[in-house]
Design a protein around this nucleic acid. Sequence first.
DNA 1: TACCAGGTTCCGA
DNA 2: TCGGAACATGGT
Length: 281
Amino acid sequence: MEKIILDKTFFSIEDTLFCGQFFAYEKSGNRYLIRSDDKFCYAETTDENTEIVCNEDEAGYFSNFFDLKRDYSAVYKKALSYDLPFLNACAEQGKGIRILRQEKYENLISFIISQNNNIPRIKKSIAYLCENLGEEITFLGEKLKAFPKARVLADQSEEFFKKAGLGYRASYVKELAEKLKNGDIDLESLSTLPTQKIKEELVKIKGVGEKVASCVTLFAYNRFDSFPVDTWIEKIYRENFGGTLLDRKKISQFFIEKFGDDSGIIQQYMFHYKRNFEKEF
DNA sequence: TACCAGGTTCCGA
DNA sequence: TCGGAACATGGT
């Protein structure tokens, strides 16, 4: 067992988990059990620190997963430098957010499930897939389940995915799993491409549109020049930026032109605030 | 009961 | 190319 301890100012577990980037966690007492692929850790933010507990040989993995090498105080200061009252409030409330460096395959499946869906249901569906198809993993004496491999998902019937609560998204996930199994799609090979090119490749997948592709470039390829626009961001655009555009792709471009390479984290500050904390603006 | 949720696909003009 | 209906399902 290994414990990683960091100052909580720019790393809050609640902020990081409640900004809608990630669905594979559950509360367990004062801490959160977090799963990525087939690896687990516990995380807790106390009065002063955030503490991660994981297997010794996976400390490097989780250090990368939580993006611990990036200086988020600089990102926060950059957000304040735009001098926008609404954004200042968002950054102040969300400065503990870190953009997780997620597994590409798992993140893509998760965000296909996310379309026209709500976060509690998305979490439930992903947990169902793991519980029923995931490899058993023992972590600190507990028996837990990994995220299922693509070849296992590919062998399921569409009925299974409907039982998991995927609804009409069932066929999307099945088709993607089959293509991954056959090697028709290689997500890792896209890593070296520019952000726009990655998105162009991702939207060729059935069930993946502009918004899901933006989430995956941000959360799994860690491209901060991504700005996913969903119903919440659209509200922010209209209510807090006085925007009039209707096309979500154009709204995304509007924000990327405004915030450049900080777009991804600023998007997360704003989503987190609007969904969880908004008072009057 | 109708509307909403981290949208995308499909169809007709 | 563009606008709008259809798509599953649980929560409020």
